[in-house]
């Protein structure tokens, strides 16, 4: 005798409904004179890493300003007010998945 069962998985790809509008931002011609934002997850080790990355981006690419932001909760998406401020930046580096 056969038995019919239901698929227990979400079953419609992995993306959720909130992800339909995703697109990568336009790439830049140059970082010289640019404002680059860092969004840190706030973990201890990120501070010294981003200190160094800030120096490197200025030295290697002539970045004009680096804006440092820290998420209020490292396991949650970036806070809305950080994303608002990010609109003023030319480029964004987020991290670090440690």
């Amino acid at each position: 005798m056969s038995i019919e069962v239901l698929d227990p998985t979400y079953g419609d790809g992995l993306a959720g409904a909130g992800s339909q509008e995703f697109a990568l931002a336009e790439r830049l011609e140059t970082l010289a004179g640019a404002t680059v934002g860092f969004i840190s997850n706030g973990k201890q080790g990120t501070v010294r890493f981003f200190d160094a990355l800030e120096r490197e981006l200025i030295a290697q690419y002539g970045v004009a300003h680096v804006v440092r932001e820290v998420k209020s909760n490292y396991s949650a998406p970036a806070d809305p007010d950080i994303l608002d401020r990010a609109k003023e930046w030319n480029a964004l580096v987020s991290g670090i998945g440690d």
Partner: peptide, 30 residues
Amino acid sequence: SNRITFDDPLSVQEHFHSRGWTDGLPIVPP
């Protein structure tokens, strides 16, 4: 939900385990 037909309940178990749909313990066929 998609429906899947099996010959017997044991086949359900093995299919569900093999797809990673269980915690490793037997399940009740849904």
